[in-house]
């Protein structure tokens, strides 16, 4: 079973986001970058499937050379290979651009796939688009926001989280799956894994290698402005004894907020 996991380098969730208003971009200085949290569940699930069924796990990212660190992390977790699809264009927030690049790479370079794993959403772009787009571009079944995966031979049942319920989606492979928290508990890298990852070579594939021209994947969304959200004002804080405090809170909800 050959599994590909698609991962992204993103700012840590604790990051304070600062905006460069001249260029409408996020300032990179001072940010710590990590493997996007949901992608960790995807990597873990791929590794577990390999351990159970054999085969090979390859981590793939679209990005510039800084994303090599993210791929090293995947190798240290235990993926067999890692590939950088080099795209020098900074974040466009356009899911279609990345999806087209990935779909082309999968067709040209990774055509021996059984499963394609993603995170359900990338931190930052917060798009939740790329897995479904890749599935459509390759004509594959999809199951998004998956918390449990049962596999039998060439078929599977994915439990996908929806509002207040789970949906059981039947899949025949090859298929696209995007991971949600709950799918598993991602492992830590071992020292041995980190040492091995250091030595491993990471092939770099350019857009030209994929016969992609800039116009084939030009972003079709334009970000015209990035702003900070309006600051919330701290409201009234009371330290009365509980009975009085509870009364005041309900009074606030009733008279000022008018929600009760």
């Amino acid at each position: 079973m050959n599994i590909y996991v698609f991962v992204k380098r993103v700012p840590d969730t604790e990051s304070k986001i600062r905006i460069d208003h001249e260029t409408n971009t996020i300032k990179e200085e001072g940010l710590t970058f990590v493997l996007s949290p949901y992608d960790e569940y995807a990597v873990e699930e791929a590794l577990r499937l390999r351990e159970a069924n054999g085969g090979k796990v390859t981590a793939v990212t679209v990005g510039n050379e800084k994303a090599l660190t993210t791929l090293k992390k995947c190798l240290a977790m235990g993926t067999d290979e890692a590939v950088l699809l080099k795209d020098e264009v900074p974040e466009t927030y356009d899911g279609l651009r990345t999806a087209k690049t990935l779909a082309r790479a999968i067709e040209k370079k990774f055509s021996d796939y059984t499963l394609l794993f993603f995170g359900k959403q990338s931190v930052g772009a917060d798009n939740s688009q790329i897995p479904s787009m890749v599935a459509e571009l390759l004509g594959l079944p999809q199951a998004n926001v998956v918390t449990k995966l049962e596999i039998e031979g060439n078929k599977g049942i994915a439990h996908r989280e929806i509002e207040g319920a789970l949906e059981k989606v039947s899949l025949s492979f090859p298929a696209v799956i995007s991971a949600q928290k709950g799918l598993n508990e991602p492992r830590y890298e071992t020292l041995k894994g980190i040492m091995a990852a250091k030595k491993k070579e990471i092939p770099v594939v350019t857009l030209a290698d994929l016969d992609l021209k800039e116009e084939d994947i030009a972003p079709l969304l334009e970000v015209t402005k990035i702003e900070s959200p309006p600051q919330r004002q701290a409201g009234k804080i009371v330290e009365e004894e509980p009975a009085e405090a509870a009364k005041q809170m309900v009074k606030f909800l009733h008279e000022e907020a008018k929600v009760i």
Binding site: S15, I26, I226, S228
Partner: peptide, 11 residues
């Protein structure tokens, strides 16, 4: 974007 830490206007 960034879980609401920034707002992007898009066309």
């Amino acid at each position: 974007i960034f879980a609401g830490k920034a707002l992007a206007t898009v066309t």
